[in-house]
Amino acid sequence: MSFEHRDDTGDRFGMWLFLYTEVILFSGLFILYAIALTTYPQEYITASNKLNIWFGAANTVVLLTSSLTIALAITAIQRNQIRLCISLCVATIGLAFVFLINKYFEWSHEISLGIYPASETLRDMGPGVTSFFNLYYFTAGLHGLHVLIGATLITVVAVMVAKGKVTSDRYVLLENSALYWHLVDLVWIFLFPLYYLII
């Protein structure tokens, strides 16, 4: 008699616990931001105005849409629409790369203006603007790393769906990867207004 050890609810709860620790990680950076904002309110406005709202807004739409596609992928696998599920995973991965390419152009532009950690331009602008951009590069960079990890996870799961290892009966791996992806979206939901929209 074989007994399969399986606890999907437990697996999902484990993922949620991990995501709470991720929130605590990012909230440390947001607290630093809040302290610096109360210390240098004027400099933060100056610095924020140097960021391009439209790059940020475009990336917000891209991430929200990718969250939609991965959420739809779960309904697809639950309804045993395997091809649709794979297509939605591929769409999510595609949007992740659109996000990163957008970020590449945005950062290239800023670096060409001399705005990067420890640059002379930033030193001349004083400690307030410098702290804004240091936090901006670190938080957005850590977020970008999460985008890359999330896209990798979804790629692996999409292959497993194609091979029939993740099925409409057993799809907790897809659910957990989707949860991770939504966390990436959640972080950006706060990062975007705080860094791009301060006036």
Binding site: D7, D8, L68, A71, I74, T75, R79
Partner: peptide
């Protein structure tokens, strides 16, 4: 923990939330 399967959320719900 008991293994209760979630009902699939309709595509329409997700699209409305996205809007």
């Amino acid at each position: 923990m008991s293994e209760e399967k979630h009902e699939p959320v309709p595509y329409q719900t997700f699209i409305l939330i996205w809007v």
